[in-house]
Amino acid sequence: MAYKPQYGPGSTVVAENRRKYMNPGYKLETVRDVTDEDIVLVMGHRAPGSAYPTAHPPLAEQGEPDCPIRKLVAPTEGAKAGDRVRYIQFADSMYNAPSQPYLRSYLEAYRFRGVDPGTLSGRQIVECRERDLEKYAKELVNTELFDPALVGIRGATVHGHSLRLDEDGMMFDMLQRCVLDKKDGVVKYVKNQIGEALDREVKAGKPMDEKWLKAHTTIYHSVVGTAFRDDAEAVEYIQRIHALRTKYGFMPKE
């Protein structure tokens, strides 16, 4: 019988969402339309429309050594062209944001090729070749993995994940890279991910409503969402792992 990954334990909507997002067979729902040019502007690595700077000559030109692994693994478009490695980093609010750092790394490893995800407590960075990154970043921003108010594209000064929300429902951002336009209710990026002012505003869409967030979140939260302790299956699994790890620390002889 072929191996079928289970992705994670749990019987609540949070656990179900985690499994869905990690599963590359599940098509992520597209909920907004941020253009390629807008993504490039917010990331701030190159001017939109400019050529991709390269770190090395294209693979076809540089003469690859005779290597069985290179024959097995097809290079990504960015690697083939010799692009630089660049990054996008997200901060996710614990108030029912659709994604959270650990999940992001898992889902990127399952869904994307040639990526180097890095998880930190309140933020997650993913690095890869520039043109691949733009493709992946578009998917991360335009689908249900993103919410303009509760997820921030932040390269530096990322604090906000564990803080109370602003009065208008936005996650705290020391650099206020995006603002909620009260007139049309759309979140607009006014700075790129490292905090440099943009020449024009980039629209990231309207913040999702509370009901949608609660149905799409992957974070347990006992006050505003689904409590971890309400998920008996997940608790049982964590307790089992904890017990096994603790016992293993004592090197039991059975």
Partner: peptide
């Protein structure tokens, strides 16, 4: 939470930090 006048770290360190709060 502190809101600095300029960007405190990162590549844009020292750039002005307009902030409505």
């Amino acid at each position: 939470q502190s809101i600095p006048v300029t960007v405190p770290y990162g590549p844009a360190r020292g750039a002005p930090n307009p902030h409505s709060r």
